[in-house]
Each structure stands twice: as C-alpha cells, then as structure tokens.
Amino acid sequence: VIAMPSVRKYAREKGVDIRLVQGTGKNGRVLKEDIDAFLAGGA
C-alpha cells in the first residue's frame, strides 16, 4: 500500500486497516480523504 507516513498514522489512530482502503491518489496512493471516506461508510 502506497501512503505517506502521516496518512498511515492517521489510519492507525482511527482504527482503520489501511490495506482495506481504496487509494484515489496518484498510482493508487491512499490519501487522508480516502480514510475519511472509508470511515463515512464504505470502500
């Protein structure tokens, strides 16, 4: 999974398994917005 360390930390704090999140950034990078969208109700 491609993600910046700050995004990985954010996901950990929110209790999200970053491997389950679909990245929308360049080359499938997971963004902070992707974590929020995942929490809001889905992949």
Rank of each mutant, 00 (worst) to 15 (best):
A37D: 11
A11K: 01
G42F: 13
A37R: 14
T24A: 03
D34W: 01
P5L: 08
K14Q: 12
G25T: 03
R19D: 08
I35P: 00
Q22V: 15
K14N: 11
L20N: 09
A11R: 00
V7S: 03
R12Y: 15
E13A: 12
K26Q: 12
A40Q: 14
Y10L: 05
Y10T: 06
G25E: 02
A43T: 14
D36V: 05
M4G: 15
K32Y: 09
I2V: 12
G28I: 02
V1L: 09
Y10W: 03
G23Q: 03
E33M: 10
A3L: 03
N27S: 09
M4F: 15
D36R: 04
R29P: 02
R8Q: 12
I18W: 06
V30D: 00
T24R: 06
L20M: 14
K32W: 07
E13F: 09
A37T: 11
K14A: 08
R8H: 13
G23A: 07
L31A: 04
S6T: 08
A3H: 06
R12I: 15
G41P: 10
V7N: 03
R19P: 03
G23E: 02
A40H: 12
R19L: 09
D36C: 06
K32L: 11
K14T: 07
Y10G: 05
A11V: 01
G28W: 04
L39H: 05
V21Q: 01
G28F: 05
R29G: 08
V7D: 04
I18A: 02
I35M: 01
A37F: 10
V21K: 00
G28P: 02
P5R: 11
M4Y: 15
A43I: 13
I35Y: 00
I18K: 01
V21F: 02
A43Y: 13
G23I: 02
G28Q: 06
Y10H: 10
L20A: 11
V1A: 08
I18P: 03
I35D: 00
A37Q: 11
R29H: 09
V16C: 06
P5N: 12
L20G: 06
K9W: 09
K9G: 06
A43E: 13
K26R: 13
Y10S: 06
I2E: 09
A40I: 12
P5Y: 04
I18R: 01
Q22D: 08
R8Y: 10
V30Y: 01
V16A: 04
P5S: 11
Y10K: 06
R8A: 08
V21A: 03
V7L: 05
A37G: 08
D36E: 06
A43H: 14
E33W: 08
K26V: 13
R29V: 09
L31K: 08
D36M: 05
E13I: 12
A11I: 01
V21E: 00
R19Q: 10
Q22E: 10
R19Y: 09
N27Q: 10
V7A: 06
A11G: 03
N27M: 10
V7K: 02
V16T: 03
I18L: 11
G15S: 06
V7H: 02
K14H: 14
K14D: 01
E33V: 12
V21G: 00
A43W: 13
D34G: 00
G42W: 11
N27H: 13
K32M: 13
D17E: 07
R8E: 12
R12Q: 15
R19N: 13
M4S: 15
M4H: 15
Y10M: 04
E33A: 13
A3W: 02
G15L: 06
V30F: 01
L39S: 05
L39R: 06
T24Q: 05
A3C: 09
G25S: 03
E33F: 07
E33T: 11
L20W: 09
K26P: 15
G23W: 02
G28N: 08
E13M: 14
G25Q: 03
V7C: 06
A40L: 13
A11W: 03
D34H: 01
T24D: 02
I2C: 11
Q22I: 13
K26G: 09
N27Y: 11
G42Q: 15
K14E: 05
R19S: 11
L31S: 09
A37W: 10
L31D: 05
T24K: 05
E13S: 12
R12F: 15
R8V: 13
R19T: 12
A43F: 14
V30H: 02
S6M: 07
S6K: 10
L31R: 09
G42S: 14
I2K: 11
N27L: 09
I35N: 00
A11N: 00
E33H: 12
A37H: 12
G25M: 02
V1H: 08
K32E: 06
E13G: 07
R29M: 15
L20P: 01
K14I: 06
I18Q: 01
K14F: 07
K32T: 07
N27I: 05
F38I: 07
R29A: 14
N27P: 02
R19I: 07
I2D: 11
V21Y: 00
T24M: 05
R19G: 09
G42D: 13
V16Q: 01
L39M: 09
Q22P: 12
K9Q: 14
G25Y: 01
F38L: 07
G15M: 08
E13V: 10
G23D: 01
I35H: 00
D17F: 04
I35K: 00
I18D: 01
V1T: 10
F38A: 06
G42M: 15
L20Q: 13
K32C: 11
T24N: 05
E33Y: 08
D34N: 06
L20F: 10
I2G: 07
K14R: 11
I18E: 02
P5G: 10
G25N: 02
R8N: 06
S6E: 14
Q22R: 14
F38D: 02
K32P: 05
G41T: 14
S6I: 07
L39T: 06
I2Y: 03
R12H: 15
K9A: 12
V16M: 03
L39A: 07
V1Q: 09
G15I: 03
G42T: 13
M4I: 11
